[in-house]
């Protein structure tokens, strides 16, 4: 069995408890406007091009099988690109290869109560692959977390539920029309799935990105808080919007839909946290 990932990040400290390694799976059914990992969305491999780094040596052209035709994402150009301007995003990997990488930081997980987080993209898109990884982690007694948009067939979610120690479950917008506009999909499935998961799994943290002007109104936050606390979920993370992913859009040849959007102010974030705390939820800012 193989899966497609686009990165493995060590010393990941904002995706679950302790020091963690986050495995980023490639492919996502959503296309959120604020997505800071646009290269995670397509399930296919892609070439990222960083214009600033290119020294114009032309080596990439000599190895490109497509010529002027459509990019095959074969990665030949990235292989010969000395400056690192061209980068192949997406790697087909065996579970064993990922486990080897995960095991490198065992000593840090043990010391900190950390572990591994499967994120994306959307890990549920590769549920069988993730399940295999979860089992391998379980054998090694490594704590596991899944960060998901919740947009997947329920059976996929429940298939992974038993083998996962913690779910980080995104709830972006309660209003379905807005959800459709800004993420490309309806939130009905996401909401139903969370309800079903909460009935089965007792370690879920809901995560809300705070995107000014899109979902940071009191109404949305109130609805989110009410829904979450009604499910018996006790913790919620709010993730303030940041611009760190902006320049990736250019590298991947796409247009960023929120140019000029500024991160929410500290005061606003604190107000939102206050609303959620008022509903008895434990709130953490920044995951």
């Amino acid at each position: 069995m193989t899966g497609t990932i686009f990165d493995i990040m060590r010393y990941s400290i904002h995706d679950g408890p302790g020091i963690r390694t986050t495995v980023f799976l490639k492919g996502c059914p959503l296309s959120c406007w604020w997505c800071h990992n646009p290269e995670s969305q397509s399930a296919k491999k892609e070439i990222l091009f960083n214009r600033d780094r290119c020294i114009g040596c032309g080596e990439c052209k000599t190895v490109c099988p497509a010529g002027d035709g459509k990019c095959l994402a074969c990665g030949n150009c990235a292989g010969v690109c000395c400056s690192g301007a061209r980068e192949l995003v997406g790697k087909t990997v065996e579970p064993a290869e990922i486990i080897k990488e995960i095991e490198k930081d065992l000593i840090f997980y043990e010391e900190s109560g950390g572990g591994v987080t499967f994120s994306g993209g959307e890990p549920l898109l590769q549920a069988d692959f993730v399940q295999c990884l979860l089992e391998l982690c379980r054998k090694r007694e490594i704590h596991t977390a899944i960060e998901t948009s919740g947009f997947a067939p329920l059976e996929k979610l429940l298939q992974l539920s038993a083998g996962t120690d913690l779910f980080l479950y995104d709830l972006k917008l309660m209003d379905d029309l807005k959800h459709q506009k800004y993420t490309g999909v309806s939130n009905r499935l996401i909401i139903q799935n969370l309800r079903a998961l909460a009935a089965q799994h007792d370690n879920i943290i809901v995560r809300v990105p705070v995107i000014p002007g899109i979902n940071d109104d009191d109404g949305n936050i109130n609805k989110t808080g009410d829904f979450v606390s009604a499910l018996g979920i006790r913790e919620i993370n709010i993730l303030p919007y940041h611009k760190a992913g902006m320049d990736k859009y250019e590298r991947i040849g796409r247009t960023y839909l929120l140019p000029g959007l500024e991160p929410p102010t500290g005061e606003r974030v604190a107000e939102l946290a206050g609303i959620l705390q008022g509903k008895g939820l434990k709130v953490k800012i920044g995951g």
Binding site: Y11, I19, I107, E111
Partner: peptide, 16 residues
């Protein structure tokens, strides 16, 4: 958690 993880990082290095 920033402090905790820094402390964990140090303890881990010293374990090694």
């Amino acid at each position: 958690s920033g402090i905790d993880n820094l402390a964990h990082l140090v303890r881990s290095y010293f374990k090694m």
